[in-house]
Nucleic acid binder design. Structure first.
Length: 283
DNA sequence: TTGTGTTTTATTGCCTCC
DNA sequence: GGAGGCAATAAAACACAA
């Protein structure tokens, strides 16, 4: 208790106004706490009860004053708040005694402190969400660029393949009966698999549409069948991240086994059916 | 010194829980 | 119905630029 302070407790039960000197209740009526100095400036401390109960006098002479807690008081309250941000009655009483405050003041302080904490927490949450959004957006942009680049690569390779097919009809590397896969068929194949991965993966609740980030084919391993080639992408059987493979280029790698529809049926009979494609997310 | 914005202390009203 | 929590708000105290 700071010496020489009178405390008004409108607290005790809302509306039943009491005045405290230290922990001693005094009969009083009014709204706020007043410092001893201010009290003595306006009238003597030992004002008669009649005067104290004179509403008009009180309102004219005693404007509302608020008492700032000392830094030691605040420090102790903060320490206590760190331990536990809720205040059970026993702790409230103990703290109040220790600090020389009214239990109601301690309760109010905790209440306001919780409100401040909540506001800060909201700000922190906002910052986290925003930075996560920004990261996602930038990786989405680079994936889109990469996607465009790869699409045009597929187009040009497909054209070359068609030219080659005309010039060398008996080319043994692939089956002449099979037409090159149109690029429009290839794109949905990859995007479908990415959707599967993202919607259940580490990015949480990512919801993808046709504009959403898509997976990029990084390289295709050497296993090409001699008489046929890919039509669809099989289930991703092993996934690895940069933590696992030691690379640190911001990409998440995923090896995907690529199969054709027809060969998928063959697989049931135990035959080899496709090739590994190394895909990655930029992120 | 003063005007203005921010922080802190306190009140009020409503809600939930026991 | 009382106690305690919370949101909204008031108002004193404080900080600071002009």
């Amino acid at each position: 208790m700071e010496s020489g302070r009178l405390y008004f407790d409108a607290s005790a039960s809302r509306g039943n106004n009491m005045l405290f000197l230290g922990n001693t209740e005094l009969a009083f009526r009014g709204r706020s706490m007043i410092s001893m100095e201010e009290t003595s400036k306006r009238r003597s401390f030992f004002t008669s009860p009649d005067e104290l109960y004179d509403e008009e006098y009180y309102e004219k002479q005693l404007p509302e004053k608020k008492h700032r807690l000392s830094s030691e008081q605040v420090h102790l309250l903060e320490k206590s708040f760190e331990e536990e941000n809720k205040l059970e009655p026993e702790r409230k009483t103990q703290l109040a005694k220790k600090l020389g405050l009214q239990p109601r003041q301690v309760a109010v302080w905790f209440q306001n402190r919780r409100a401040r904490w909540k506001t800060k927490q909201l700000e922190r949450d906002y910052d986290v969400l925003k930075s996560s959004y920004d990261t996602l957006l930038s990786s989405y942009d680079s994936i889109m660029k990469e996607n465009e680049k790869l699409k045009s690569e597929v187009v040009s390779l497909n054209e070359k393949l068609q030219v080659q097919a005309k010039e060398v009809p008996e080319e043994p590397l692939y089956d002449k009966k099979i037409d090159p896969l149109p690029v429009n068929d290839i794109a949905p194949i990859f995007s479908t698999r990415v959707e599967d991965h993202l919607s259940s993966g580490s990015v949480g609740s990512a919801v993808l549409d046709e504009d959403s980030p898509q997976m990029v084919v990084d390289s295709v391993d050497s296993y090409f069948p001699t008489d046929n080639y890919g039509g669809c992408v099989g289930p991703a059987e092993r996934a690895q991240s940069e933590e696992e493979d030691g690379s640190d280029d911001g990409r998440s790698y995923l090896d995907v086994f690529v199969v054709s529809e027809t060969e998928h049926q063959n697989h049931e009979e135990g035959e080899a059916l496709g090739w590994w494609a190394n895909m990655y997310y930029v992120g």
